[in-house]
Nucleic acid binder design. Structure first.
Length: 426
RNA sequence: GUGGCCGUAGCUCAUCAGGCAGAGCGCCGGAUUGUGACUCCGGAGGUGGUGGGUUCAAGACCCAUCGGCCACCCCA
């Protein structure tokens, strides 16, 4: 079966130019916002030793068991395309001793999970994450949540997102709770859905966020995690909610929110939306005070979150958030040999003068009519015209494409002035 | 990984009781040989996702495969 057309790997789509506008806008906004809180960017490799993920995410999680892109390289080492960002970030922090003093870090890039693609779920997807190392107090959580809340506001989606919060306590508290939960659910084994029955032995806490209504009904009578929290966890959680109250950030307490990765303790949170169907989690995170030590570093508390960029972009679309348009300032039109050379020289001068404004040249010749059609289609504010007449008098014509203003034939310097007036009004 | 729906021009979609494929938009050219958007005229573009089967005949029916969508599972 000769495959005629090579196509992208399933679940790993291209982002074509027509779609790239929202990406760039989002990326800039996120970078500025995160760095505005004093977070520093860290750039991490896409591939890590398989062991790193097995040991951090948890051996019995779905991610490690069946979703990782793992391969043996030429040195016989087992490597894995990262399924999430925290593990690699922690590895780097340990390797470069970055947590001697408290650190705020952020990163972005592609993650890989072999799942069946659907809306808001891809095999290669983009995440932006932020992590705080060396801070054991809940002011770190408050800051991270405030940061994300600010982002939703800036993106114009704050009306469509909801913050869910929980504390899953310390390792020992959770172990005790797990016993109680298993004891309770074992009594009602036949009332649980098959998936939950299976998880009773593998990962009982995950039963809590089962979507099965019958299972949820069984859980109504189950022991509650918050009853098992020790003093320190309860105090920290109270301080967290007090901070959010002070900032008027609304949240919903969800004592069945447990999260899928094993390394969390105490705080876990999720920003969700109902606009995107089944894949409603936009951003999620929590505290992981034992992970650094567990991976061989000096015991250092950590908190962080990761957000899924594609999902947020889908939400922007659903909310019809208006995006700033980027259109060319100038489309340059020229005809006739001397005029083309004059144009060539002048548009380079314009680019030096106007910096980041788009100055688009016509390529490949064509009649004036053709070139002006291209100018119009480009969305440019003005067409600058170099023709025989202009060349003869060392001038250029400024033709306004978006307003009723008359076109003018002027000197280069005057043209720059006219363009500056447009730039100011943008 | 499981289940359901879907796959026709660059895009949005028609057609059909199985009889050699169409529209709108977009694109290119012209009316307007130095002036875009509106209008008019003309044109290019499809081995009907791919491979196989049934049939005199298949884009339409059957199977497989690839891809998309939706849900489950899981998660960002």
């Amino acid at each position: 079966m000769p495959e005629k057309v090579l196509q992208a790997v399933r679940g790993m789509p291209d982002v074509v130019p027509a779609q790239v506008g929202p990406w760039q806008w989002f990326e800039r906004l996120v970078r500025d916002t995160i760095q505005g809180y004093g977070y520093q960017e860290i750039r991490l490799p896409i591939i890590e030793p398989t062991q790193l993920f097995a040991r951090s995410i948890g051996e019995v999680t779905d991610i490690v068991e069946k979703e990782m892109y793992t391969f043996i390289d030429r040195n016989e080492d087992s490597l894995t395309l990262r399924p999430e960002g925290t593990a690699g970030c922690v590895r780097a922090v340990i390797q470069h001793n970055l947590a001697i003093t408290p650190q705020r870090l952020w990163y972005s890039g592609p993650m890989f999970r072999h799942e069946r693609p659907q809306k808001g779920r891809l095999r290669q997807f983009q995440q932006v994450g932020a992590e705080v190392f060396g801070i054991a107090t809940p002011d770190a959580e408050i800051e991270l949540i405030a940061l994300t809340a600010r982002l939703w506001h800036l993106l114009g989606v704050s009306g469509s997102v909801k913050l869910e919060l929980n504390s899953i306590g310390s390792v020992t508290a959770r172990a005790q709770y797990k016993l109680a939960l298993v004891a309770y659910l074992s009594e009602r084994l036949d009332e649980l859905d098959p998936d939950s029955q299976r998880r009773l032995t593998t990962n009982p806490l995950r039963i809590l966020d089962s979507k099965n209504p019958d299972t949820q009904r069984v859980l109504d009578g189950a022991p509650v995690l918050s009853d098992y929290l020790d003093e320190a966890s309860s105090t920290a959680f109270r301080q967290l909610t007090e901070g959010l109250d002070a900032l008027s950030i609304p949240y919903v307490l969800n004592n069945r929110l447990v999260r899928g990765l094993d390394y969390y303790n105490d705080t876990v949170f999720e920003w969700t939306t109902t606009e995107l169907g089944a894949q409603g989690t936009l951003c999620a995170g929590g505290r992981y005070d034992s992970l650094v030590g567990q991976l061989g570093g000096k015991p250092t508390p950590g908190v962080g979150f990761a957000m899924g960029v594609e999902r947020i972009l889908l939400l922007l679309e659903a909310c019809q958030t208006p995006l700033p348009k980027i259109e060319p300032l100038v489309f340059a039109v020229a005809a006739g040999k001397p005029a083309e050379l004059a144009c060539l020289i002048d548009i380079e001068r314009l680019r030096s003068h106007f910096g980041s404004a788009q100055i688009v040249a016509n390529l490949g010749g064509g009649s004036f009519r053709t070139q002006l059609k291209r100018a119009d289609k480009s969305g440019a504010h003005v067409a600058l015209i170099w023709g025989e007449t202009e060349a003869a008098q060392g001038a250029v014509t400024v033709k306004y494409l978006r307003t009723e203003q008359e076109q003018q034939t002027v000197t280069y310097d005057q043209a720059v002035e006219l363009l500056e007036r447009i730039v100011i009004n943008l």
